[in-house]
Write a protein that binds this DNA or RNA. Structure first.
Length: 264
DNA sequence: AATCTTGTCAACCGCAATAGG
DNA sequence: GCCTATTGCGGTTGACAAGAT
C-alpha cells in the first residue's frame, strides 16, 4: 500500500516562490510561529505543500540566516566537520550559525570539493588522492584528533541525540567505523569544539517561542583549548574519542547554553 | 551578436525517522 | 505493537546567470 502524497499536487504551485508567497509565509510564521507545516499552507492562504513552505522558510526566509560568501574559516570548519561527520549536512549546519544544510551542501559540491581536489585530497575520504588503500599504510597522526569534551552542550537538544543515533544506523554518520576513521585522518586535525561567546545569553525568562538554541561553535575555536567535544556534542559520549574526563572545567562549561534571539 | 558551456543555488523528490492514535 | 500522518534529511534536478567561443 503506497503512502498518500504529502499534499494534493494538482492544487499546489511549484517552482520559484513569488514575492507575494514569501510575504504570506513570513507574515504567517511571524504571527503563529513555526511548525505544523502540513496545515500551514492552507492557513496562510498558500497554494504550496507544507514541505515546500518549510524548505522555503528554513533555507531562505528565516531572519537569522547569514547571507554572503563563506569565509575561509567557515571553509575550513566545514572541511573538518565533513571529515568527521560525512555528508551529515544538517549536523554540519548546526555548527555554522546562520548557515543552512542546503547552503552548505551546495557550497560543498560547488566549491569545497574542487578546493580539496586541487590540494590532492579526496573530498569523500579526506585522504590524499594517491594514497594506497591498504589499512596497514594508514597514517595515524599522533593525537591528531584530540577531543577534550564537555558532556551535554547542545547534546541536550534531543534532535542531536536522535541524529547521532540514526547516523550510526545509516552507517554514514558517526558509526564506530567512522569514528575509527576519524582517528586516522591524513592531516593534523584538532577537532576540539568549544563554546563561543554567546550571541546573547539565555535570559531568565527564556521562551522557546522566541529563542532558539544557537550553534555555539565557531571556527576559531578549533585552535583554542576546547571545552566541548564533538563526541558529546553529537551524542556519543561513550565513544573512546570522548575525553571529557580530561577537562575538569568541562561540567561547568557544559551547563552553559547560549541562545540568540529569533528576530522577527 | 549569437550560441554554447559551465557554475550556482533554490527547489523538488524519495526515503527514513518519529509522533500520535 | 501496529498503522498512518507528519517532519526532516540528503541526493538530485533544473532554471538562470555569467563567461567563453
Amino acid at each position: 500500500m503506497g503512502r498518500s502524497p504529502c499534499c494534493e499536487k494538482a492544487h499546489t504551485n511549484k517552482g520559484a516562490w513569488t514575492k507575494e508567497e514569501d510575504e504570506r509565509l513570513i507574515a504567517y510564521i511571524r504571527a503563529h510561529g513555526e511548525g505544523c507545516w502540513r496545515s500551514l499552507p492552507k492557513a496562510a492562504g498558500l497554494l504550496r505543500c507544507g514541505k515546500s513552505c518549510r524548505l522555503r522558510w528554513i533555507n531562505y526566509l528565516r531572519p537569522d540566516l547569514k547571507r554572503g560568501n563563506f569565509t575561509d574559516e567557515e571553509d575550513e570548519l566545514i572541511i573538518k566537520l565533513h571529515s568527521l561527520l560525512g555528508n551529515k549536512w544538517s549536523l554540519i549546519a548546526g555548527r555554522l550559525p546562520g548557515r543552512t544544510d542546503n547552503e552548505i551542501k551546495n557550497y560543498w559540491n560547488t566549491h569545497i570539493k574542487r578546493k580539496l581536489l586541487s590540494r590532492g585530497i579526496d573530498p569523500q575520504t579526506h585522504r590524499p588522492l594517491n594514497e594506497p588503500c591498504s589499512p596497514a599504510e594508514v597514517v595515524h597522526p599522533p593525537a591528531a584528533v584530540s577531543v577534550p569534551c564537555v558532556k551535554g552542550s547542545s547534546v541536550e537538544d534531543p534532535n542531536m541525540e536522535k541524529k547521532a543515533d540514526s547516523a550510526e544506523d545509516s552507517g554514514s554518520g558517526i558509526s564506530s567505523e567512522e569514528e575509527a576513521h576519524s582517528k586516522q585522518l591524513p592531516f593534523d586535525l584538532n577537532l576540539d569544539l568549544s563554546i563561543s561567546l554567546p550571541f546573547s545569553q539565555v535570559p531568565a525568562d527564556y521562551d522557546r517561542e522566541i529563542f532558539r538554541p544557537a550553534t555555539v561553535v565557531t571556527p576559531a575555536h578549533f585552535n583554542n583549548a576546547a571545552t566541548v567535544c564533538l563526541c558529546c556534542n553529537i551524542g556519543i559520549q561513550a565513544s573512546k574519542a570522548c575525553t571529557c574526563h580530561l577537562s575538569p572545567d568541562a561540567n561547568q562549561a557544559q551547563s552553559l547554553r547560549y541562545y540568540r534571539p529569533f528576530e522577527a
